[in-house]
Nucleic acid binder design. Structure first.
Lengths: 321, 321
DNA sequence: CTGTTAGCGCCTTCAC
DNA sequence: GTGAAGGCGCTAACAG
C-alpha cells in the first residue's frame, strides 16, 4: 500500500509538495503536479483516511440514530439523508437505538471519541444533559434546550386533515395517537384535533395510546370497539390508519361509507398498495435535506435556524368520501 | 480534550502503562491501574478512535451496500447486521447503491482507503474484477469467483411453495419473478417452479419480468390479464404477491377461492397487516448473522464457508386455501 | 511490571 | 514554489 512518501519519492519531490498537490491546499508548479499525478497513477495511491482524520480531527462521518430502521418513515429519512451526505463525500453511520436511552448516550460518546462529526437524532427520549455545543440536530423532537430541530407543520397539517373529515360529512370524529415520552412536535397532531373539535363544538374522543411499533392492530381494535359509533378517524400515523382500516373491515364497517379515515406520514404507499390512504404527507426529502444542512452549518460554525418547519400537505386517497 | 499523555501524567505513570491499562493488552499492577482509572475519570478521558485506527490499520467499521434501504427486505437485513456489528463494537456504514455499479465500485475503493474493514454486498450487478482477497461477503448473489456468500435454500423452499399450491387444489399455477442482471440464487426460485410443473406434467407459465421496485402493480396487472384462467400463483417476492392480491381483487377474483397466491421473503407482515400472505419466510436474522460471521472470519484470516445456506420455510397465510 | 521511544500516514508550519 | 521537520493520539517493541 503506497503512502504519500512513496508518491513524493517517485515524483522526485518532497512530501509537502505531494501533500499540497493532493489535498489542493497551497500552490504547486505545473511541472511538479504533473509528475505527482503520474506517480499517483503508477503506484495506485489513495490517501489513507484514518491518517487524514487524525490530522484533521474529523472523520467525514455523520451518524443518524433512529428508534428502528424497520419502519418506513425512518427508512425513508435514512435514505434521503444518505443521499445528501453522499453528495458531500460524507459517510453515514446508522444506529438503531431501539428506543434505548443507553444506546443513544453512546452516540454522544462517539462525538467525543472523534468517531463521528455530528448526529441526526430521532428519539423518543429526553436527553437534558446534552451539551449544547455538540453538533447535533433533531427531527420532530425537542431533545434538549438548544438542540436545533426540523419538523413538519404538524399542527396546521393535522387541522387540515380533521377539517377535511368534517367537511366530507363525518359527524363523530375520533383520534388515536401514539404517546411520546418526550415533548415532541408530534403531540401537535392530537392537539390540533382537540382544538379543532372544540372549535366546532364537537366532543373530543382522543386516545393517546402508549404502545410499541407493531401493536397498532390491537390498539385500534380496542379503540374501535370502545367507540363503535364514530364515522371519522384521524390517526396519528399511517400504521395506525392502516390498522384502523382493517379493524373496521373486520367489524363489518365499510370504508369510507361508514368510517372515513385520515392518517399521517404518507409513507405506506410504496409497500402497501392498498388501501390508498387519505393522509398528511410529510416532505421527507426536505426534512432530511434540511437536517443535513443544519448539521453542517453547526459543524462549520455557520448560522442556522433553531427550528425549521417543513410543509406537509394532505393527500386525498380512498379512505375518505 | 484529554489525551492518553494527560492521563499518564495525572496518574504519575508512563504512557505505555496507561495504554496497556486502557486497551487491556499487557499486564499492569493493581496500584497503577487504580490511579489510571481515577485519572481517566477525573479528566473525562476517552480514547481517540482515529488515532487507534491509524495505529492499528483498521477502522472498526463495516459497510453494507444495498440497492435501496427503502425496501422491507433490505431494511430488515440492515437491522440485524447492525445488531451483530454493534455487539462486536463495530460500526455499520450503510450505502444505497441505487443499483448503480459506480457507487458499488466506490465501496471497493473504501477498503483501499482504509475507510472500512469489510463490506457486505447485496447487488444486482456482476463485479468480475473484485480482488478475491478483499474482505467481502455477498448475500443471495454470486458477485465474483471466490467471494463467499450466504443465501436461503431458494430452490427447496420454492418447490415447497409450489407443491403446496398444487396440494391445495390449484390446477393452473403461474409464476412471476423479477429478472436479475447477475447470476443469482434468486433465479432458483423460478427454476424450482419450472421443474416442479414439468414433473407434474403441467404447463409452465413463467414470466421473468424486468422491472424496478415500485412497478410490481403494473407487472402483475399485465400478467393476470394475459393469464386470466390461472387459479394459483407463485410470486418471486412478497411485493409481487401483494400486487397480485390487489390486482386479482380489481379483476373481480376472490383470493384464495378463485386464485391462490404464495409469495417469497416474509417481510411484508410488519408494515402491511393485510393480506396475511402465504409466503416463504426467509430467516433474515440468520442470514445477517452469518454474513457478519463470515466477514469477520475473512478479516481475521480464519476459515470460512464459501457458501452458506440458511433454511427458509413456508408460512401459511390467508392467500391459500 | 514499567517508562521511553519510534512510528502509523498525513498535513502544516517554517525557513529557504 | 519548495523540502524538511514536527506532531495529531495511540500502540508496540524495547530495554530496564
Amino acid at each position: 500500500m503506497a503512502t504519500i512518501k512513496d508518491v513524493a519519492k517517485e515524483a522526485g519531490v518532497g512530501v509537502g509538495t505531494a501533500s499540497r498537490a493532493l489535498s489542493g491546499n497551497g500552490s504547486v508548479s505545473d511541472d511538479a503536479r504533473k509528475r505527482i499525478d503520474a506517480a499517483v497513477k503508477k503506484l495506485n495511491f489513495v490517501p489513507n483516511q484514518s491518517a487524514r482524520n487524525l490530522k484533521n480531527q474529523t472523520c467525514a462521518t455523520m451518524a443518524i440514530s433512529v428508534p428502528t430502521i424497520r419502519h418506513p418513515f425512518f427508512a425513508k429519512i435514512i435514505y434521503y439523508v444518505e443521499e445528501c451526505l453522499s453528495r458531500r463525500g460524507v459517510r453515514m453511520l446508522v444506529v438503531n437505538s431501539q428506543d434505548k436511552k443507553s444506546k443513544e448516550s453512546e452516540m454522544l460518546e462517539m462525538i467525543r471519541q472523534a468517531r463521528v462529526d455530528g448526529i441526526i437524532f430521532i428519539t423518543h427520549h429526553a436527553h437534558d444533559s446534552i451539551d449544547e455545543n455538540l453538533p447535533i440536530v433533531s427531527v420532530d423532537r425537542h431533545i434538549g434546550g438548544k438542540v436545533p430541530f426540523v419538523t413538519s407543520n404538524n399542527y396546521e397539517a393535522s387541522r387540515e386533515a380533521v377539517e377535511y373529515l368534517l367537511s366530507r360529512g363525518a359527524k363523530r370524529v375520533g383520534c388515536v395517537c401514539g404517546k411520546t415520552a418526550v415533548e415532541s412536535e408530534v403531540q401537535l397532531r392530537y392537539k390540533a384535533y382537540d382544538d379543532c373539535m372544540r372549535e366546532h363544538g364537537l366532543p373530543s374522543r382522543l386516545e393517546v395510546a402508549d404502545f410499541k411499533h407493531g401493536d397498532e392492530m390491537e390498539v385500534m381494535r380496542e379503540y374501535l370497539q370502545n367507540n363503535p359509533d364514530i364515522d371519522g378517524l384521524f390517526a396519528g400515523s399511517d400504521m395506525l390508519a392502516n390498522a384502523a382500516y382493517y379493524n373496521a373491515l373486520l367489524l363489518g364497517k365499510r370504508v369510507p361509507e361508514d368510517l372515513q379515515i385520515a392518517g399521517f406520514d404518507g409513507v405506506m404507499d410504496e409497500w402497501c398498495p392498498h388501501p390508498k390512504l387519505t393522509t398528511v404527507q410529510q416532505d421527507i426529502e426536505a426534512l432530511a435535506a434540511t437536517a443535513v444542512d443544519v448539521l453542517f452549518a453547526r459543524v462549520r460554525g455557520e448560522e442556522y435556524e433553531h427550528k425549521t418547519v417543513i410543509k406537509a400537505k394532505l393527500k386525498i386517497g380512498e379512505t375518505t368520501k
